[in-house]
């Protein structure tokens, strides 16, 4: 299990709408809606937090799942969004041009 850092692409628009993150690509208008777990990963994907910390400190705690299952699911989820250009990963911490995702008002 190799740790990585995950960051949001800067070619996207995104907003949390009623608890779910909605993402729209500026380049091809692709639309993505993330469920609660996906939204939590997205919000934590600041390029500086290792994926292991996202899994341990956010997903496992919030959703009461075992680490092995959570790691497997989050890895698969991240790989999917990387393939769409929504997330990018690196073995090193990354800076992102966009400010940290602001705490959204979950209206």
């Amino acid at each position: 299990m190799t740790d990585i850092f995950v960051a949001r692409s800067d070619r996207l628009a995104a907003r949390k709408v009623a608890g779910e993150v909605v993402i729209l690509s500026a380049d091809d208008s692709s639309l993505y809606v993330l469920n609660g777990v996906g939204s939590a990963v997205w919000e934590a994907a600041d390029g500086r937090t290792p994926l292991s910390a996202i899994v341990d400190d956010i997903i496992c705690r919030a959703y009461n799942v075992d680490r092995e299952s959570a790691w497997r699911d989050v890895e698969e989820f991240v790989a999917g969004l990387v393939s769409y250009g929504v997330l990018r990963t690196s073995p090193e911490a990354m800076s992102i041009d966009l400010p940290d995702h602001r705490p959204s008002v979950d209206i």
Binding site: V17, A18, E20, V22, L31, V33, I107
Partner: peptide
């Protein structure tokens, strides 16, 4: 999917 987003926004007054 876009309709789903609009419906969620409508229900939540966003």
């Amino acid at each position: 999917l876009m309709q789903y987003v609009w419906d969620r926004a409508l229900d939540s007054h966003v």
